[in-house]
Amino acid sequence: MGTVLNDPYEILGVAPTASAEDIQKAYRKLAKKLHPDLNPGNAEAEEKFKEIASAYGLVGDAEKRKRFDSGEIDATGAERPPQHYYKDYAFSEQDHPYADNSGFADFMDSEDAFGELLRRSARAQANRRGHDLEFRLPIEFIESIAGANKRLTLPDGSTLDVAIPPGLTEGQVLRLRGKGAPGSGKGDFGDALIEVEIKPDRLFTRQGDDIYLELPVTLTEAVLGARIKVPTPTGAVTMAVPKGTNTGTTLRLRGKGAPRHAGGYGDQLVKLKVVLPKEPDPELEAFVSNWEGGKTYNPREEVTP
């Protein structure tokens, strides 16, 4: 829409020298004709109303008009955020206290085919299915892998039990049949749609069906090999660290990843990181200073300029 570039005076149909009263008069005249709530179904009127409303928002305000006339601000500043009109609610399918069918009640009572059609439609409306309700549910990473039973508290204070299936992915939507808004008459309940949001985990990340974990090991475990306990989302397992393991070595725990859609499980990939003791150790220092091998190998061969 090129509306922002247009001259607000031109839009309102007044001269740039017009008095404040004339501008208000011109706006009121146009607004009465074009107000969206008084012209439902007329998209063109709504577009035009937006134009005149932003034009009036600019030059209908003495302060803003002064700044606009001096070139300090342009018409862009007058753009209004989109807002909901009365018509958006009054014409929605939801029942509301202002609904009024008296304007055609006489047609409804007539004995002809049209009256019959109206009555049938009213009966269909009377047994309408309820609306779907949408909710967001944050869960822990571990719950997304292993599954969980969660309880959601709704805005009205009631609760909803949600079974999280194992292996759920971010943004997945769960549909709980019949847990939405009540229908009217004999209409069914709508569904509850629950969008699941997985909180980031301190330890684990997920790529596809595989789970990644970085795991620190001691120097001794790395050099000599060891059997160590490794956390997985479904509980700790024992893993063999081979002799001579290095930082960056990645080990695969088969079947310890997320459940696959097609059945089976992904893997957990454990990336090891050799970590020295927190406090300097005199014995280790003494050993390393006497260790000839440590002075001859070059781990930076490939990064040396």
């Binding site: 009024d100 069918n101 008296s102 304007g103 109206l118 439609s121 009213a122």
Partner: peptide, 17 residues
């Protein structure tokens, strides 16, 4: 206005019907 919206709602329901 409320009568107008009542008719618009019914018109939509009729179209569906």
């Amino acid at each position: 206005v409320d009568q107008l919206y009542g008719m618009r709602r019914t018109l939509r329901e009729l179209r569906q019907e």
